[in-house]
């Protein structure tokens, strides 16, 4: 195996023969004084911007073709705050209904007890949206007339973004990844997804959703201060059963001209296949 595992092993990162690719983003430096850490991080980001862009990102602002890969892994979705906050602190910003607050607490309690509730990916089911968009594996955008396809390395998830201007077809079935319709607002790709089943989570840690979930993503390409190219995805989550109002989380996907999507077989070696609905590390 040429793969190097760099991520902390997390209970819901499951069942893969090829855990993470060689060349995975390095973990940000830890320890030492904050100024030195910031300088080291700046240096790393600048080096990576050059390395990742040797095979350059497409120049048209609406062209996302090619491979992108989020840095690191945050297993939580939290509302975007006006200042940096820890996931636990930002959890206070979540506009949860009583149903969701109780559900979230149950998830946290079960995990603390060492019996985490099994999430869809632990069974090699598609991750759901927005859960999939947090996954720490590379993604590739492919354009065709009237269609943008997003290929996810993780568990060979595939998203189809229908760009043909047609509404959601009648009798569209509910599914793990829902039905996505996209359009451009300037240089921002706006994707609205609904028709979800209720078998996935919002995030890996604790947040749930029901059948009324609607997710609106706003993806914009930009150049970061290191000269690297990234896609910012502002993800708005609406589900009146679980949240009292819409809220918006963020994910960033740096351009990765240096890698290709690898084959990933969740089904081959599912070490986290749940037993009686509980995740069990094997």
């Amino acid at each position: 195996m040429r793969r190097l595992a760099w991520l902390a092993v997390s209970i819901a990162v499951v069942c893969t023969a090829s855990f993470a690719q060689e060349g995975a983003p390095q973990a940000p430096p830890t320890g030492g004084d904050p100024a030195a850490r910031a300088a080291a991080r700046d240096k790393l980001n600048a080096t990576q911007a050059v390395e990742w862009n040797k095979n350059p990102a497409p120049t048209d602002p609406r062209d996302f073709s090619g491979v992108w890969w989020t840095r690191g892994y945050d297993r939580t979705f939290r509302p975007v705050a006006d200042h940096p906050m820890s996931p636990d602190a930002a959890a206070t910003l979540l506009p949860m209904t009583p149903l969701e607050a109780a559900s979230r607490q149950h998830h946290l309690d079960m995990e603390k007890a060492g019996t985490p509730i099994a999430d869809a990916p632990t069974q090699c089911f598609p991750h759901g949206i927005p859960r999939l968009m947090a996954s720490p594996y590379p993604i590739e955008f492919v354009y065709a007339p009237g269609l943008i396809t997003i290929l996810h390395e993780v568990a060979h998830n595939v998203r189809f973004i229908h760009m043909d201007g047609k509404p959601v077809p009648a009798a569209t079935p509910r599914s793990f990844l829902g039905y996505s319709v996209g359009h451009w607002e300037g240089n921002t790709l706006v994707i609205v997804t609904d028709h979800f089943n209720d078998r996935t989570q919002i995030d890996e840690e604790s947040l749930s959703h029901g059948l009324q979930l609607k997710v609106t993503e706003r993806m914009t390409k930009f150049t970061n201060k290191y000269g690297g190219v990234e896609i910012r995805n502002l993800i708005t989550i609406e589900d009146p059963e679980h949240f009292t109002k819409p809220w918006t989380a963020e994910r960033l996907y740096p351009w990765r001209g240096d890698i290709k999507i690898a084959e990933y077989s969740c089904e081959e070696n599912n070490r986290n296949a749940p037993v009686n609905g509980i995740s069990v590390a094997k």
Binding site: P58, D60, Y143, A144, P145, G146, G165, W184
Partner: peptide, 13 residues
């Protein structure tokens, strides 16, 4: 029938 248009550009065709 292809559905390409400026409102939904298809790149790298």
């Amino acid at each position: 029938a292809p559905a390409a248009s400026d409102t939904a550009p298809a790149f790298e065709q």
